[in-house]
């Protein structure tokens, strides 16, 4: 089942999930998928680990959007730059020269005041989406490689938090249009990347509950990444087990030498790995009511643009 409404019809796709599950890979691959379908994409790397750049085999990107691939511009979030841009655009305070001490100070206040730091990230993203909708931007869709599940709610809720906390001023008045964009399921979807393993699945289920109870952000799809292929059908697995009986193993050892035992043991491990993951998947599916997208595990050492391309194809196969 593909996501509803379709990713390609939306304006903002946010990818979050447990650390290391493949958020950056999936966000970059989705950007490529969208670009392959004629969308002009802005890809935003929020944790600024430069994964997005490496997934397109491009030099590091900064706060100003840079073309990293045909149809894809990327930028790395930088709250100081975002503050500078914000002051200029919204308060008409041009900050010339060093913003350092001011930003440091702001950082300091922002550490204590909820939503302040997050609004700089969220505000920039929402602004880019608004420009896209208005047809003033060089992109049609914004795809975000967001922070991990533990922190994402603070980001998603930043506009509401600010509105509740700050009673006057431009920061507050700016929040309404942001909320309109971020909470509209026709425009925005929050997608969760996970793997079929115990902790990522538990974290995904928990995140979905938290998003539903503590925010109005529209959930999109769960992307289950690193899914092992099924080695045998149920019937073939019975045959496989039969072939592991001592007399059959003697036959294959006579033919291929004793090392063939390791080959059968290897298949046994693959079956066991797949089975334990399947249990986690069943648990996930029984616990959530969101569309799921499966992305196969890539054996070998794929990386960079080839990895992105292969995963983009897998996403395309699932979504279309």
């Amino acid at each position: 089942m593909g996501p509803t409404p379709s990713w390609l019809d939306q304006r903002l796709l946010v990818f979050t999930g447990k650390g290391g599950t493949g958020k950056s890979t999936i966000a970059a691959a989705t950007a490529l998928f969208a670009a392959n379908h004629g969308k002009r994409v802005l890809l935003v790397d929020v944790d600024a680990k430069q994964s997005v750049a490496s997934l397109f085999e491009h030099a590091a990107v900064d706060f100003s959007a840079t073309r990293v691939h045909a149809g894809i511009d990327a930028l790395a979030m930088d709250t100081e730059q975002s503050l500078r841009e914000y002051l200029k655009l919204n308060l008409r305070i041009p900050v010339v020269g060093r913003i350092g001490p001011l930003a440091k100070m702001f950082d300091f206040v922002a550490t204590a005041a909820p939503g302040v730091k997050e609004i700089l990230t969220l505000g920039k993203i929402a602004w880019e989406v608004r420009e896209a909708i208005a047809g003033r931007a060089a992109h049609d869709i914004v795809i975000v490689d967001a922070v991990a599940s533990g922190h994402v709610l603070a980001h998603l809720n930043a506009a509401r938090t600010i509105r509740d906390l700050v009673d006057v001023g431009p920061l507050r008045t700016q929040t309404d249009w942001m909320i309109d964009i971020l909470e509209d399921p026709a425009l925005t979807s929050i997608n969760i990347v996970t793997t079929p393993e115990e902790m990522p699945v538990a974290e995904t289920i928990e995140l979905i509950q938290r998003v539903r109870s503590a925010s109005r952000a529209p959930l999109g799809s769960v992307v289950v990444n690193r899914v092992l292929p099924e080695l045998f059908t149920r019937d073939d697995e019975v045959v496989f087990e039969t072939l592991r009986n001592p007399s059959s193993q003697r036959l294959v050892v006579d033919e291929f030498g004793s090392a063939i035992i390791d080959v059968f043991e290897g298949a046994r491990l693959a079956v066991d790995l797949r089975r334990s993951r399947a249990e986690h998947l069943d648990h996930l599916r029984a616990s959530i009511d969101m569309p799921t997208i499966f992305v196969p595990y890539q054996f070998g050492s794929l990386h960079g643009l080839r990895m992105t391309t292969v995963i983009a194809q897998a996403i395309s196969d699932e979504v279309l």
Partner: peptide
């Protein structure tokens, strides 16, 4: 300058 800007952004009560 910090207070000027912060005040305009956040309001003095919050600060």
């Amino acid at each position: 300058p910090f207070y000027q800007i912060a005040d305009r952004l956040l309001g003095s009560t919050f600060l």
